[in-house]
Design a binder for these strands. Structure first.
Lengths: 145, 145
DNA sequence: CTTGACCCTGTACCCTGGTACAGGGTGTAA
DNA sequence: TTACACCCTGTACCAGGGTACAGGGTCAAG
């Protein structure tokens, strides 16, 4: 199992920089499966999955801190189930708000494309017209400092 | 129309920092409606909308550069319709990929919550189990440097 | 007419998320 | 046995997106 590969191969497979993988390791986000005698980091398919997830989640506007939280979500003997459930529900809500916002944006873009096809010039920015909702895209309570 | 207000009120209404609003102005993302004789910036409801959009789009992982592009998308006398259409379609595709990724994440969270309710401990991180897809969340062709 | 809250410009600083060396070891194919 | 691609640690640097003064004007209430 867990086809071993070095950091370079992993990075290439997922499409990130080698340095970035090491950076994630410093942040305890993604460690190697094991080390070779030479000291080379070794990664398996699970690590690849994880790295891919991190990459995608980043593109969705999650911070590395949030990604850590997401990846740590699991019901273990140590974690109280109700805690996990609550966290998961919070995250879920946040994700749903994001989906809605993106869907509104998608609709706006679609209607713009429609207008294009019909050859109707749109004067004011049509993106805004459809996105007037005040609903805020929540990104984790800003608990900095 | 366009209830005038100063930068402080605008910032508070939308929930961003005053400095941030001025920062956006430097980047030509959001200018004041007008200036008072005193030099105070004045904003109307359109600016508020725009600021709100910027804030939400940021939380969705769009860069300020991308947000500028989105806000500039409109069919004007100057912009060739086909160009706008193409850009809009590109953005739309990008948005749809994001939506899909978020929905996969939402599902993962839901099944985690289910497992919680059922009192079944999930050993390995269940988020990953559902997010094995290799599909990449595209964020604008990385044309840096 | 003063005091407190707010605004102005300008410049400096900060955090997050990377990237890039420098200096040195590893591994493998010719 | 060497040459080349790759790996290691450590440290420094960078861009994006803000945030925080400093030094000074504005305005409205008391």
């Amino acid at each position: 199992m867990a086809a071993e590969r070095t950091i370079g191969r992993l990075a290439k497979a997922v499409g990130v920089n080698v340095q970035t993988v090491r950076y994630y390791e410093r942040l305890h986000l993604l460690g190697p499966y094991a080390r070779a005698l030479s000291g080379y980091r070794l990664y398996g398919s699970e690590e690849e999955q994880r790295l891919r997830f991190i990459k995608n989640a980043r593109a969705l506007g999650f911070t590395l801190r949030e990604i850590t939280d997401l990846l740590d979500l699991r019901v273990s003997s140590r974690a109280r189930c109700s805690d996990v459930q609550q966290k998961a529900e919070e995250k879920l809500q946040c994700v749903e708000v994001k989906v809605q916002a993106l869907e509104a944006l998608a609709q706006a873009l679609e209607s713009l494309i429609q207008a294009c096809r019909a050859g109707q010039p749109t004067d004011r920015c049509p993106i805004l017209k459809r996105l007037e909702k005040k609903a805020e895209v929540q990104v984790e309570s800003r608990t900095r400092r």
